[in-house]
């Protein structure tokens, strides 16, 4: 017995120029906010951008975007609706507000299902918001998506950075490109993480300050656009996440 789905995944993704997973060994470091804002920043530079929420059990990007009343279209698969200029896909379309308790094998199955039926069409960038940690979702993405690249988020805490180091070593073993590291929620000007990143031989993409206004921007991307976070990601979109 053969599961036919996995074989079409790269076919589905072949018209996407760059596929970037925003990830971290740690939870709560700002992956969802960074992924969403990066997607918006790229879209507003004129690129065609998709955003895919892969945090099936605790999705957040729909809240950051303030998504309501949209559903994918069915057309030889599932066509993601356009939300704020992004082709946007999330399991929330199907799970609604219900809790979705999934074990590892279920996460893999849902991931394979969505990757094999979603028709993204032509995109310059697909940004993927990852669940925390380096287990099923990371391993499956690397297994199924040939051209995947990672952008890693950490906080200034060495507890977060320690998990990031493990993730970097895993990704290197798997020969997956790493675009660089973003240090989020910085409380001071210390450059420890920047130096540690350079020691790993990776690019330090930005230090994003802790911004107490962020909570008020949740669900309102016009407000989000005017934060220091957005400024940092506009910068990254201009210099480090480009098409050449």
């Amino acid at each position: 017995m053969i599961d036919p789905r996995a074989g079409v995944i790269n076919e589905r993704l072949k018209m996407i120029r760059r596929i970037i997973a925003v990830s971290s060994g740690k939870g709560g470091v700002g992956k969802s906010l960074v992924a969403t804002t990066l997607a918006l920043a790229l879209a507003r530079r004129g690129y065609k951008v998709g955003l895919f929420d892969l945090d099936f059990t605790s999705p957040s990007t729909h809240l950051i975007l303030g998504v309501r009343d949209v559903q994918p279209k069915e057309e030889k698969g599932i066509v993601p609706p356009i939300v704020d200029g992004l082709a946007y896909m999330t399991l929330v379309y199907y799970s609604g507000d219900q809790a979705t308790p999934l074990r590892g094998a279920d996460v893999s199955n849902a991931l394979i299902e969505l990757l094999s039926v979603t028709q993204w069409g032509r995109l310059d960038f697909l940004i993927i918001d990852m669940p925390p940690g380096i287990s099923d979702a990371v391993l499956d993405l690397v297994r199924f998506v040939k051209r995947i690249e990672f952008l890693i988020v950490t906080t200034s805490s060495l507890l977060a950075f320690e998990t990031v180091k493990k993730q970097v070593s895993l990704l290197r073993d798997l020969k997956v490109p790493i675009i660089g590291i973003v240090e989020n929620m910085k409380m001071n000007a210390a450059r420890t993480i920047e130096r540690e990143t350079e020691k790993l031989g990776l690019k330090f993409l930005a230090g994003i300050p802790f911004d107490p206004q962020v909570e008020e921007t949740i669900g309102d991307t016009a407000k989000l656009w005017n934060t220091t976070i957005a400024n940092a990601l506009k910068q990254i979109a201009e210099t480090n996440v480009t098409l050449n």
């Binding site: 599932i78 399991l91 809790a99 308790p101 999934l102 299902e113």
Partner: peptide, 25 residues
Amino acid sequence: EAIHFVPEVAHSYIKCPKCGSPDFE
């Protein structure tokens, strides 16, 4: 229809008829 698209969302809607747990395989 939701389960049709992604069978795993069964975990959002179906519970064990005996004990009510959503932790089923």
